[in-house]
């Protein structure tokens, strides 16, 4: 399950971008009636998949003429894409490091705004067949553990947690994004992994084991408009929507913590 869906989504987006580029640009506009119309491309961390899908539905219900196109993937991959080829109006990253790459390339419009918090959990197949109870258990060489690669935010966070706990894990596989940890565990092919609590909650066939607060990390997600969003009211409206009351409520429904 690892990287597949992500790649497919990327291809879809790439195709959409190519098609969009071929047909003459169709920028979002505000019609005379004040009705918002057009579309915005949102690059979002894989861990935001479910919450943002719901977000777009709520947004499009409010603005029937507007549409949101997503490109989900690892924040690091998305940041590279934005810097190399652009194509996104909004970027929601799982950590500040990847957002900073885009800021450094002077592609961000205004300031990134922190909008949600997340933390990590140990993910195990439903019923926890290997009886994993704590981080120390992950050091067992007979246990098949999947971690995210250190290049991506959730992998970096997981390494932080493990080093705080003084546990060394030899994973059987390194996933390319947050969702890539969930697949093999939910299928029962891996015994455990370290994932965002929100991804554990969204997964079928898997459950979570809590990591104590003193060992856990607080992952703060920033969101920003890119320079490409200039003159695109849909991008601005979606950005505001995420930060506003209903957006916050939706993120809370999916288990994300609020940012004061």
């Amino acid at each position: 399950m690892s990287a597949g869906p992500v790649i497919r989504v990327r291809l879809l987006v790439a195709t959409a971008l190519v098609l969009g580029a071929c047909s003459s640009q169709n920028p979002a506009v505000e019609s005379e009636s004040g009705e918002l119309s057009g579309s915005a491309v949102v690059f979002a961390a894989a861990s935001l998949t479910e919450a943002f899908a719901e977000m777009a539905e709520a947004f499009e219900a409010t603005h029937p003429q507007a549409s949101i196109v997503f490109n989900f993937g690892s924040s690091s991959g998305l940041a590279t894409q934005l810097v190399e080829q652009g194509g996104g109006d909004v970027f929601a990253s799982a950590d500040a490091v990847q957002m900073q790459k885009v800021v450094d390339a002077q592609l961000v419009r205004g300031e990134p705004r922190p909008f949600v918090r997340n933390h990590l959990q140990i993910i195990v197949p439903f019923g926890n067949p290997a009886g994993v109870e704590a981080l120390e258990d992950l050091a067992d060489p007979d246990l098949k553990v999947v971690l995210a690669a250190e290049q991506v935010p959730v992998g970096r966070y997981a390494q932080k947690v493990l080093s705080k706990a003084g546990v060394t894990v030899n994973p059987v596989s390194e996933a390319g994004d947050a969702k890539g940890v969930v697949g093999p565990v939910a299928l029962g092919e891996a015994d455990a992994g370290i994932a965002y609590a929100t991804d554990v909650a969204a997964a079928d066939g898997a459950e979570g084991v809590d990591i104590p607060d003193e060992l856990n990390v607080e992952a703060t997600y920033p969101i920003a408009l890119t320079q490409e969003a200039a003159g695109n009211p849909v991008a601005q409206a979606f950005f505001d929507f995420v930060l506003d009351g209903e957006g916050r409520r939706i993120m809370g429904d999916f288990g994300f913590g609020a940012v004061e």
Partner: peptide, 20 residues
């Protein structure tokens, strides 16, 4: 899966390297 030195072939390494 994807583990350097065990199952990470060149295409997988390219995919992961693209991240950073």
């Amino acid at each position: 899966g994807n583990l350097p030195g065990r199952t990470q072939t060149v295409p997988l390494a390219v995919f992961l390297a693209l991240e950073t």
